[in-house]
C-alpha cells in the first residue's frame, strides 16, 4: 500500500472502511447503544444495501459512514480519510468533495429553484460553467423544463429526481441513499430506482443505500443486514462488476 504525500490518503481499492464502529447515546441517565462493533469494507464502484428492521440502527450507520456524525467508538475511513480525525467543518468539505446524498424526503432547499439546488454543491467547490452542467444533469433526470421551478411546485417524483441530479452534480465517489423511494408510489419508485442505478453505473460511483425494501436491496451487489445495532449478515448477492 503506497502512502500518499497527504498522510490522510492511502492508495487502496476500498472506498469505505468501517472498523469496530459503535454509537451510544446518553438518554435520561441511561446509555443507549445504537450500533455495536460494526466491521465492513465497501469497494469502490460497488452497490450496497443496508437493511434491517425499524430501529435497528441502519440510518445511524449511514450517517456515520457519510460523516454526518461522529462515532462513539471505532473508525470510519472514507476514501482513505479517517473521519474521526476531522472536525465538522472538515467533514463538510470531505462530503462536498467525495459524497452524494439522496434522502427519503428529498431534502431540497425550498427557497432555491431546481436548477439552483443542483448547482449548490458545484458552487461550493468554486467551479466554473456550472449552470450548463447542472442543466445537463437535470436533462439526464428528465427535468429539462422544470429547472426554474421551486420544490413546492414539483411532484414527489420530480423532487427526488432533482435530488438525484444534485447528488451526482459534484461527481461523488460514493453515494449514500436513505430510503430513496420511501415517499414515492410504486411507479415513480421504479423510475427513480432505474435512474439511481443508471447514473451510478455511468458515473462509476459507489452506492450505499439504506432501505426496508428487500426488492430494492436485491438490486444491489451486496446486502448488509443490521439488527439491534449489530451486523448480523453480509451477503454478496451478485458478482462485483
Amino acid at each position: 500500500m503506497a502512502v500518499h504525500p497527504n498522510k490522510n490518503i492511502k492508495r487502496v481499492e476500498i472506498i469505505l472502511n468501517i472498523t469496530n464502529l459503535g454509537k451510544t447515546y446518553n438518554s435520561a441517565g441511561k446509555t443507549l447503544t445504537v450500533l455495536d462493533n460494526i466491521n465492513f469494507t465497501v469497494n469502490a464502484g460497488s452497490t450496497n444495501a443496508i437493511v434491517g428492521p425499524s430501529g435497528s440502527g441502519k440510518t445511524t450507520l449511514l450517517g456515520l459512514c457519510a460523516g454526518l456524525d461522529r462515532s462513539s467508538t471505532g473508525i470510519v475511513e472514507l476514501n482513505g480519510i479517517n473521519l474521526g480525525d476531522l472536525n465538522e467543518d472538515k467533514r463538510a468539505q470531505v462530503r462536498n468533495q467525495y459524497v452524494g446524498f439522496i434522502f427519503q424526503n428529498f431534502q431540497l432547499l425550498p427557497t432555491l429553484t431546481a436548477l439552483e439546488n443542483v448547482m449548490v454543491p458545484l458552487e461550493l467547490r468554486g467551479e466554473k460553467n456550472i449552470k450548463a452542467r447542472a442543466m445537463d444533469l437535470l436533462d439526464k433526470v428528465g427535468l429539462t423544463d422544470r429547472g426554474h421551478h421551486y420544490p413546492a411546485q414539483l411532484s414527489g417524483g420530480e423532487q427526488q429526481r432533482v435530488s438525484l441530479a444534485r447528488a451526482f452534480s459534484n461527481q461523488p465517489k460514493i453515494l449514500f441513499a436513505d430510503e430513496p423511494t420511501g415517499n414515492l408510489d410504486f411507479e415513480t419508485s421504479e423510475k427513480v430506482v432505474k435512474l439511481i442505478f443508471d447514473l451510478n453505473r455511468e458515473a462509476g460511483t459507489t452506492l450505499v443505500l439504506v432501505t426496508h425494501d428487500l426488492e430494492l436491496a436485491a438490486k444491489t451487489q451486496r446486502i448488509i443486514r443490521i439488527k439491534g445495532g449489530k451486523l448480523v449478515a453480509d451477503d454478496h448477492t451478485n458478482v462485483i462488476a
Binding site: D89, A92, R95, N96, L109, L124
Partner: peptide, 13 residues
Amino acid sequence: ASIAIMRCLGVKA
C-alpha cells in the same frame, strides 16, 4: 432543515 441540508452538501458552520 435548510441549514442541515446545506451542511450535508458541504457548507461549513
